[in-house]
Nucleic acid binder design. Structure first.
Lengths: 111, 111
DNA sequence: ACGACAATTCTAGGAAAATCGAAATATCAA
DNA sequence: TTGATATTTCGATTTTCCTAGAATTGTCGT
């Protein structure tokens, strides 16, 4: 579960979520840092740290190709995170996704 | 999208994720703070801050009943977050959820 | 080997978050 | 109204995160 904490934490930051979504749209090849930088506009060192955070927690993969390093979504891990949310974490919700049942929370204390 | 950032961020902390999962299992009634505290074991003031964070970002609802304040999952909002992950954010994955397709990222540079 | 380019690591300052004891607020019961 | 219980707010400390310039590493072309 600690892995999930780190992943949620990685996505819980404006710039990093933006980067993540960008790479989702980039497809399996991903994008090199230069390309990402062109789109999100931030200093290289800052971007590098964000990419590192996303990679360390398993959301992205990185591989070098010549002078470029390509970052791409790690689909296996990402799928696991989603599964965690829908099945493990939100077991109850799983059945009612989208329905959002009305709660009835009036008179019930246990004393 | 900022709402989602806050929500991911809220879940990106060990204790808060634990609280969240606890409340998922607690069902629509939720639990009062005392009950939660008995299970997660942390000082009241710390717990209170975590509950506040989870509530402010829309993941929980709170309502008073006598001396107790019950916290429960906000299913509508939680469902929205999951939908964001599966549909909006991970559009590509949406089709292949659970399959975790093998990536082929070996020899493909664009230079 | 050298110069240019891609990206990371180093370093350090500032901002934000986590923590928790103590004091405050709210509700109930007698 | 007093005392007990439930929870939050206040205040202060510590830790963790974000940011970004400068220095560094790795790779290519010539």
């Amino acid at each position: 579960m600690n892995r999930y904490v780190e992943q949620f934490n990685a996505l819980g930051q404006k710039d990093r979520l933006q980067i993540f979504r960008l790479l989702v749209r980039a497809g399996p090849q991903g994008n090199c840092v230069e390309e990402i930088k062109r789109r999100v506009r931030m200093p290289g060192s800052t971007l590098s740290h964000h990419l590192d955070a996303l990679t360390r927690c398993g959301l992205l993969t990185a591989h070098r190709s010549g002078r470029f390093i390509y970052y791409a979504i790690d689909w296996a891990r990402t799928a696991k995170l989603i599964r965690f949310m829908t099945e493990d974490c939100c077991a109850d919700l799983h059945a009612t996704l989208g329905a959002a049942p009305a709660r009835s929370l009036s008179a019930n204390h246990r004393t």
